[in-house]
Deep mutational scan, measured.
Amino acid sequence: GPGLTDLFKTEKAAVKKMAKAIMADPSKADDVYQKWADKGYTLTQLSDFLKSKTRGKYDRVYNGYMTYR
């Protein structure tokens, strides 16, 4: 089956995709945050998933999740 690194890459891609969806349409934020909360994502995990070469690119999404939880 898929190894943990593959799983991480898949999760990371999914999280980034959802983060971009929030940035494009902030009204989606609560739905996405709820999904992440259901998956039990911690802020540390989210921070790892949303690492970007562009500093602060996903800060709004991260901060939103922090206040959501």
Rank of each mutant, 00 (worst) to 15 (best):
F8K: 08
A14Y: 13
S47M: 13
D31T: 10
P2K: 06
V32T: 10
P2C: 15
K12F: 04
F8I: 13
D38E: 14
K28A: 11
K9E: 11
N63W: 15
T10C: 14
Y58M: 02
A24M: 10
D30K: 12
R69K: 12
Q45N: 06
V15N: 02
T5D: 13
L4R: 10
D6E: 11
V61G: 00
K35E: 12
D25I: 03
Y65F: 06
E11N: 04
L46C: 02
A24I: 14
W36T: 00
L43F: 10
T5Y: 08
R60E: 09
K17A: 13
G1A: 10
K12R: 14
M23K: 04
I22K: 00
P26W: 13
L50H: 00
G1Q: 11
L4G: 13
T5W: 06
T44D: 11
Y33C: 00
G3H: 15
Q34N: 07
Y33V: 01
M66R: 14
D38M: 10
D30V: 15
M66K: 15
D48Q: 15
K9S: 05
L7R: 11
D38K: 09
G64K: 02
D6S: 12
G56K: 05
K35T: 14
D59G: 05
G40C: 06
Y68C: 02
E11K: 03
D31S: 14
T67W: 13
W36N: 00
S47Y: 10
G1N: 09
F8H: 11
K57E: 11
Y58P: 01
T44V: 12
P26A: 06
S47R: 15
Q45S: 06
Y65K: 00
G56W: 06
G56F: 07
A21E: 15
T42Y: 02
M66H: 06
S52W: 04
A24N: 11
S47A: 13
L43Y: 06
T54H: 14
K17S: 11
K57A: 06
Q34H: 06
D38G: 08
W36S: 00
L50G: 02
M66E: 09
I22D: 01
K57W: 05
G1R: 08
K57Y: 11
F8Y: 15
K57V: 06
L7A: 13
R60M: 13
F49L: 08
A29F: 02
A21I: 10
E11L: 04
Y68P: 01
W36G: 00
